[in-house]
Every structure is written in C-alpha cells, then in structure tokens.
C-alpha cells in the first residue's frame, strides 16, 4: 500500500511529466527560402557583413522586403546589436553588424514581406574569434 507521501510524490511527478510533454513547441513550415552569408569567414570580433537572398516557393527572388537584423550573444546580460538590411536587387539584401565579443552569436532576421506577412529566421554564428 502506498503511503500518503508516496502518493503526493507520484502526483507531483505526473504533473511535472505532463508539464514537460505539454511544453513542446510546434514549428511552422518555411515558405520563404533564405540563403545567408556572414563575412568575414571565420567570423571574428569587429564589423561583419550579413548578406541574404530571399526567394519564394517558385524560386523567384523576393524584392521589396524589409529585413531587420538583430545580433545576440548566447549569454544573458549582453545587449543586442540592431541593423536594417539594404536591398541590393534580385532578392539580395545586406546588413552590417558588429560582433562585440568572441563566442557564439545568433543573428535573428525579422523579415516583413511585401504583402505585410512577417517571418523570423535565426542564423547561428558559432565561435566568433577574438581579434
């Protein structure tokens, strides 16, 4: 026979398990292809250029999009770096950001498509080297 404590413990375990299972996130399927390039390669502390090429499902370049670029580090306490990408034509866009510290960086792309639809993408830039 289970003691009262064991039953309570079992209840807490079940609740925790349900919480774990219930916290998984669904991922939307991509509908825009984004080619990306970050230079210099390998990335190092200092200015960097992010070049993007947007294409739709039919592989046609997407023009007239607005792309806000945000550079983040993986540790709390680091302020993000923001930049607006300039359109170069033929679905190509370019932004300048600055890697302030060595380590892992994450570049977030906040894309607003010509029709007003929004999407976000993430580029992992691992191991930015010190100068």
């Amino acid at each position: 026979m289970l003691r009262k404590e064991c039953r309570i413990l079992l209840g807490i375990t079940c609740a925790a398990t349900l919480l774990i299972a219930g916290c998984s996130k669904s991922v939307e399927p991509p509908f825009v292809a984004i080619e990306q390039d970050v230079s210099p390669t390998p990335a190092q502390v200092g200015p960097a250029t992010v070049t993007l090429k947007l294409a739709d499902a039919a592989a046609q370049p997407i023009t007239g999009a607005r792309i806000a670029v945000e550079g983040e580090m993986s540790h709390a306490g680091m302020s993000p770096r923001f930049a607006e990408a300039k359109e170069l034509g033929q679905g190509r866009y370019q932004a300048q950001i600055r890697f302030e510290m060595a380590g892992d960086w994450i570049i977030l792309l906040h894309v607003t498509l010509p029709g007003g639809k929004k999407l976000e993408r993430q580029i992992d830039v691992r191991g930015v080297r010190p100068n």
Binding site: M73, S74, H75, M78, M101, A102, G103, D104, R126, G127, P130
Partner: peptide
C-alpha cells in the same frame, strides 16, 4: 583573458 561566451564548447 578575453571572454568567449559559447553555447557549444566543442563546436570548433
């Protein structure tokens, strides 16, 4: 030493 904040230590 220069700080290097990485989330993937063995990533190269």
């Amino acid at each position: 030493q220069p700080m290097e904040m990485r989330a993937m230590l063995m990533s190269g």
